[in-house]
Amino acid sequence: MEYALPVAPGPLTQLGRVLVADTLKLRRTAVLWLALGGGALPVVLNLLIFYFKGQYFIKPGTNPWPQYISMSWQTASVLLGFFLVLLSGLVVNLENRGGWRQLLAQPVSRGSVFGSKLLLLLSLNAVAQLIYVALLLAAGVLLGALRPGLGFQNNSIGLLPILRMLGHTYLATLGILGIQYALALAFRGFVGPLAVGIGGIISALTLLRWEHIDLVPYAAPNVVLRLMDFKRGLAVPAPLSAAEWYSLGWFGLAVLIGYVLLLRRPVTD
């Protein structure tokens, strides 16, 4: 008696199915709140700073937007690292209580499982940063209404430099995201990657003046802040900085290592 070999779904179908299932698993999780609400923290902090102490930062008669954007982005860049460490740890941790056993026994390749979680992380990172920018601009408008003396309502800011800065920041975060994803897969727990991530961020902030800081992925979101130029309003060049290229390199390497780790992982838990 011969059995016909069942037809396996194609790789993209598998990836799509895992991604849909992974998205469903985010319901009522801290991950979702972190991605949707994480961008609000630096905005709220800077809103309060400008509301109460704005007169000390803004020279009367000048456009307050570049200064406001710059200060807020600096706060956000420090918090971004912690956000990425938490995000990647929490997404992978959803499977750490036996979920891997269930997930990897399903008729999908390990590559699609890996790819789905990576796409989810990339999307959540993008969503969080887009929400941050939207909230940042909305808070500026709000400041114009609440503190007319600062001049937000009488001035404007170009969207292009902000979008460019968003693009640079996003690329600069990919190194951390890739490394933290691979670490979360390697450690099979939440605490290990969290400890390494926090250590990496603190080390990077300490080494910000080092001449080779471009090489350090955890520093990249802060290093790209140097791209903001305030000579005439806010200007951000389009070409990628060295820190972004290195961030992309780290991302590629970490993703490769993470994939091999998951591919070879024996499921014993």
Partner: peptide, 23 residues
């Protein structure tokens, strides 16, 4: 050689079921 294709016809419960407790 054919893990994905073959597991499409298999249902499994391994030890205590691994569930997503928040769902």
């Amino acid at each position: 050689r054919h893990r994905v294709a073959l597991l499409g016809r298999v249902g499994a419960l391994i030890e205590s079921p691994s569930l997503y407790d928040h769902l």
